[in-house]
Design a protein around this nucleic acid. Structure first.
Lengths: 352, 352
DNA sequence: CGACACATTGTTATCGCTAACATAGCATTG
DNA sequence: CAATGCTATGTTAGCGATAACAATGTGTCG
């Protein structure tokens, strides 16, 4: 009688399952871990006992003895933004599908101290790997100072000796945008970029330049913004006063939204007076006034690739300690996600 | 010599710290856990040893013996949307500040099976509490079937005997919106709501009704949408053909964006012909054409409150097993976050 | 000054699991 | 048929922390 009570009182452990199945607890462990040498009959027996008891293996005990936590730390910032939040989604999905837990730490502000904190948090937890979804430059540098002893994948980075990187081919994306403009007949194509030094900013500027050069055009205005609609609006107001270009490539959709409003208020007609191409292709872009032509990438796929890359690493054991550091050549084969141009109503041939 | 090598080979454990500080490992544990009866001198000694060795406590071992995982499971869906993603941010922040790890599981699709899966994932992990950030109705019902043995807080729910809830006072938000319209002189105020049965949808419809009733007005058109800009656009196109109202309260900003585009294309002037109020006040709303009047809430605060509520629970031990179930009266004191109306350029007095 | 309370520290016993080794049974082989 | 190798299972020993209890030392009090 009292035994029954006890059983209800505390969760069943491996020994309970073993007793019920008439085997040793080790055999139960073997069934749970899919070891090869277990007879089908025993396996069935054990599985039945597990089901009957509603047994769940104690993860803490397992982690203690295996020295693995089965969890991946995801370091994020700006996770309420379209790109990062979708990347996060992809990361979580892929990680859980692979049997890992996902521990999240969001950076409210991207400072060395905050990064340090969050990584410390992950180390305390003994994560098996870290995915960094922080589109800020310098993050990688901070991480380098941290002496992290688990595999790490950084989104947006192209990878280096120590860390792996997964990124969207942003230069290509920018070229897609600018080529489209060139094909429409534009010859003076300005660019409203992101803040200086961001990886994304630089790559997009580069694409703009390369595309221009490829078409034999000289650079027009290059302005830098801060990604916000507010900034797009202010810049748009300035620009409207004295248009020296017929097309504008804006580094993200939010700034483009601001520009659109500013132009609207200033009487500059889009696309008649000036064509605009955005970047990110967030769902709302299709409903801007007018609907925005934009370059989009599959951010979820990006997230999935992060995990793929990380697990490829983790699978090969402590690859980080060993030769990887010397394999600088690996940086070039960082997987790149290809962006796509979605043409809508903000682009047309330049005014006559 | 070999000892030195060993020390580098494996992470230091409590015993190493103890040896170095000249105390027992238990004393080290006491220092780490802030036990009262440790002499300041010893404490300093231990802390010095910890720092010198770069010691980090093994969480798995601790979890095993304390039967606590120090982690909170966060179940989310639509985490790339403005509201949920910010709530998530608030949750993560507050949880980490309270010394908890945050394990995330994102629902790609909100089905009983997916919820089941994710919760099972959390149970495997032995989370100390669960926060549910899933704005879909029926989620709670599914959770009720799951026999969860840790405290749980559901965002958007008003709480019941078994679970706690934290929500925005959406009825109030809707009333704020409609009252504003009434004060401007509108008498025929339509509502484009969210999908049927959503908690949010119902509360906002209720607020719209109550506000109308309070002003002695009869209900105008009530249409239901699906939150998307696309749907707002289609509905807007319909509506534009035959305007039977002078003001439209839209249940979220994205649908409002679609409506704005549809009206623009149809030649319906906002706000001259019809006033529009949105809901959520996402940052972009200020840059819609024209800038959208909207009702906003502090979603991060909502997230923080979730943790607050959860930890209040967790603190009192296994409150769930005990009397809580009978305390149905507690449902009324669910903390409500108060929304605010932000007036911009889509609202004005009705046409003469 | 002996007794008792209290602050401080040490010792031992788990927590629930997996790794490593040990053992038994059975088929194969020269 | 003894030797060998495999398969299937059991036994034992930790993983690294905290809990519970034991053992000190120190000060106060009658």
């Amino acid at each position: 009688m009292s035994e029954t009570v006890q059983r209800q009182a505390r969760a069943p452990v491996m020994g309970d399952v073993a007793k019920r199945a008439g085997v040793s607890h080790q055999t139960v462990s073997r069934v749970l871990n899919d070891h090869p040498n277990v007879s089908p009959k025993t396996k069935t027996l054990v599985e039945k006992a597990i089901a009957e008891l509603g047994y769940r293996r104690n993860i803490a005990a397992r982690n203690l003895v295996t020295r693995k936590s089965q969890t991946i730390g995801v370091l994020g910032s700006e996770i309420s933004q379209y790109g990062p939040s979708n990347t996060l989604l992809g990361v979580e999905q892929a990680a859980r599908a692979a049997g890992y837990f996902v521990s999240m730490a969001a950076l409210r502000e991207v400072t060395p101290a905050a990064i340090h904190d969050a990584v410390g948090h992950f180390m305390d937890q003994g994560v098996d790997g870290v995915v960094v979804v922080v589109p800020h430059p310098g993050t990688i540098d901070v991480l380098h100072t941290l002496n992290i002893d688990v595999p790490l994948v950084a989104m947006g980075s192209s990878g280096d000796g120590e860390f792996r990187g997964v990124a969207v081919d942003q230069r290509l994306g920018a070229m897609l945008a600018v080529n489209h403009l060139v094909e429409l007949g534009h010859r003076r194509i300005a660019h409203l970029s992101g803040p200086a030094n961001w990886i994304d900013t630089d790559a997009r500027i580069q694409g703009w330049r390369d595309s221009l050069a490829g078409a034999g055009l000289t650079e027009s205005v290059l302005l830098s913004g801060d990604w916000s609609a507010e900034c797009g609006y202010r810049t748009g107001l300035q620009l409207a006063k004295d248009l020296s270009f017929t097309a504008l490539f804006v580094a993200n959709d939010q700034m483009a939204l601001g520009v659109l409003l500013a132009f609207h208020e200033s009487g500059v007609k889009v696309p008649e007076d000036v064509s605009i191409v955005g970047y990110d292709d967030q769902p709302e872009a299709a409903y801007f006034i007018p609907p925005l032509t934009s370059v989009g990438a599959d951010f979820e796929e990006l997230g999935r690739r992060c995990i793929e890359s990380l697990l490829g690493d983790a699978g090969s054991g402590a690859a980080v300690d060993a030769g990887t550091t010397s394999g600088l050549g690996a940086s070039s084969d960082a997987p790149l996600v290809r962006p796509q141009l979605i043409v809508r109503s903000t682009t047309t041939a330049p005014p006559a």
